[in-house]
Design a protein around this nucleic acid. Structure first.
Lengths: 224, 224
DNA sequence: TCAACAATAATAGTAATACTATCAACAGCA
DNA sequence: TGCTGTTGATAGTATTACTATTATTGTTGA
């Protein structure tokens, strides 16, 4: 049996639904590939268009600008993450095991995923690490937030926070701890590979060590 | 008595030392003011030049590009933070009190600082929150890192980590915890004001609550 | 079957951005 | 006085981020 992942994205993210046509889907998959390769700053609509190939104007018909496209991709990531959390927490009996599983999902390893997606999951994971904070670290945050563009992130955060509260109902910072664990997982992974002196995992570059750190932060904070 | 803060910045950050001339100093202070107001994305050399007023080419004589200028400003921030940590930890007897003091410094409140700077400290703090991660979240990280452009951040991180190790010499993640505390302090402050559902402090927007969260994460993690 | 119409893509622009290259002024020194 | 070197001003260029217009295709009803 094959599990397919598909999300209904916020229509405010696009001008024309990229899922509705082949070109649209191409724009999404090629953008992921290209931002992964050259980074968000050097990524342009003209370059993806040439890669597909189609025209710049066609890309503009689907997405208002490259920032919206980035939010579209990152929302795809958050939704995919929440899907995975939902899927893997099924039948997990204790909140302790759930938390361990969540952390395992948050930190990428070359594990064979059972879930099929049209996009490359590893590329999207790396994009999320390097570019996700750029979606909200802009002067348009409040405006974007009103349009609910960050809902998938909030939903994932709420899901994780609810497991924290299940583990310890009296813990007062469940949501802050959830967003912190998510963000730490990203930038510690980045530090591990690029700025080793800012972390303690650069000797072995083993994601398992990062997971151990995240578990220690989570469980020590939550301990009643 | 007045305490003046001045740093010797990494010469790789500039083409001509902005501290050496009045125009140079103007570029720095006006850039801080302007990035605070309109954000890094909308900030251009032409705009600062008009504000000062001088010419675009003059700004380019001091800084290679706006990314280097941003690193210059953020390094100023990290150095200033470390200076404050050094200064305020003087004569603090226990590592526990030191950690509390560090967290107090990391989270901004409208406290009157005793240290004089040419730049506006509050603006620089807000820039650090929104823009600091953009200095390293780029495809040039490794190259920039080789040039030691992130040394001030690493130094601050090391200083904080050493206090953690003083508190508990057996704790294996001192540096990761230090960088995590720094980053958490930034984005939780940001969430508090812009994405309230991602944290637990938005009701009162009281920095003291954020400090309490940071203390709980730090001390629970470090507990022997 | 085919004209009318709408939807989509392709072409050709424009304004702003991120730089570069050249030129002019003047300051210090022999 | 004239040489030199540094600073700042002027004027450019390539790229980016978008817009407006034109061409093409596909669909529908007489």
């Amino acid at each position: 049996m094959q599990l397919d992942f598909k999300v209904r994205q916020n229509p405010a993210l696009y001008l024309k639904d990229p899922e509705s046509t082949e070109v649209g889907k191409s724009i999404v998959t090629h953008s992921i590939k290209m931002i992964y390769e050259i980074g968000y700053e050097k990524f342009t609509f003209k370059k993806v268009a040439q890669e597909i190939p189609t025209t710049e104007a066609t890309v503009y018909r689907y997405f208002e600008n490259k920032h919206r496209l980035l939010i579209y991709l990152i929302d795809l990531y958050w939704s995919f993450m929440e899907f995975q959390v939902m899927f893997h927490l099924n039948n997990v009996p204790t909140p302790e095991e759930k938390i361990k599983k969540i952390i395992d999902i948050l930190v990428w390893e070359d594990n064979v995923g059972q879930i099929f997606t049209e996009f490359d999951q590893k590329s999207l994971y790396y994009i999320a690490i390097s570019e996700s904070s750029k979606t909200y670290l802009s002067k348009d945050v409040d405006e974007n937030n009103k349009e609910m563009l960050f809902k998938p992130y909030k939903d994932l955060c709420a899901s994780i926070a609810s497991v924290f509260s299940e583990y310890n109902p009296d813990y007062p910072y469940a949501r802050s701890l959830a967003s912190s664990i998510i963000e730490i997982s990203h930038f510690q992974y980045f530090f591990m590979h690029h700025l080793p002196r800012l972390c303690d995992f650069s000797k072995n570059k083993n994601p398992k060590e990062l997971e151990a750190f995240l578990e220690s932060v989570a469980f020590n904070s939550l301990k009643p």
